[in-house]
Structures are given as C-alpha cells and as structure tokens.
Simulated scan of single mutants.
Amino acid sequence: MGDTRLPPVVLSDTERSTLEDWARRRSTAQGLAQRAQIVLACARGWNNTMVAARLGIERKTAARWRTRFLRDRLDGLADEPRPGVP
C-alpha cells in the first residue's frame, strides 16, 4: 500500500510539546490540530494506513503531512497561501 519504506518521524522534546499543545488546545484551528495529531501518530511509529484508520482521514492526507513535517518540521504544518485568495 505504499507504506513499506516510510521515513521515521523523530520529534525533539520541544516539537512534541508544541504538537501536543496544538492537538489539545481548543483555540487551535481545526486543521492545525488534526495535522498535529497526524504527526504525533507518525512519531509513535504508525504507518500512513494506521494513522488514516485511527484518525478517520485518507491515507494520502497522512502521507502529505508526514512528508511536509519531515521536510519543513513545525513550519510545514502551517496553512500555505492558496491561489486566488487575497
């Protein structure tokens, strides 16, 4: 299913603390909270299929945020500007 060679997600203590805060804080935007949950699940060693099943999302969504986090760390979880939006 494409999950055979996933890069491990290893978090620093600061990253873990920040992600846990984002995931549980009520004032966090829903999308950011979900991305934090995805990365935390990946850090537990779950593959994208497991993350998707446990969080009720698509496997490609789990893969996208795992990849963005590995590339850009916490900054990769922020919303990117969308075309046509002022």
Rank of each mutant, 00 (worst) to 15 (best):
L11T: 03
E20D: 13
S17N: 05
R54W: 13
A63R: 02
K60S: 15
R44M: 06
E80F: 12
L19Q: 03
R5I: 11
L40S: 03
A33D: 06
T14Q: 15
V9T: 03
R24D: 09
L74Y: 00
L55H: 07
P81S: 05
D3K: 10
D75K: 14
M50E: 14
A33Y: 03
R66C: 14
W65S: 05
F69I: 02
P8I: 03
L32P: 06
S27K: 10
Q37T: 04
P8F: 02
L74N: 01
F69W: 02
I57T: 11
S17C: 08
R26V: 04
V85F: 13
W46A: 12
P81K: 06
A29Q: 04
G31R: 06
D21I: 11
R16H: 09
R35A: 08
L77H: 08
A52L: 03
W22P: 11
P81C: 06
R64E: 05
D72I: 05
L70N: 13
L55D: 07
C42G: 04
A29H: 08
T4Y: 12
Q37S: 09
D72F: 07
W22A: 12
L40D: 01
N48P: 05
I38W: 02
S17T: 13
V9P: 02
R35E: 03
T14M: 12
K60A: 13
T4K: 14
R35M: 04
V51D: 01
R59Y: 07
F69Q: 00
T49H: 09
L11P: 05
T14D: 14
T18P: 00
E20S: 15
R16F: 04
D79G: 10
A62S: 13
Q34A: 11
D3I: 11
R35C: 01
E80Y: 14
A41Q: 01
T4A: 15
R24T: 11
A36D: 02
A43I: 00
T18H: 07
G56M: 10
F69A: 03
P81A: 04
I57Y: 07
M1H: 14
S27M: 04
T18G: 02
G76T: 08
V9A: 03
L19G: 08
L6E: 10
I38H: 01
T61N: 10
R16G: 02
E58Q: 15
A23W: 00
D79T: 10
V10I: 12
G56S: 10
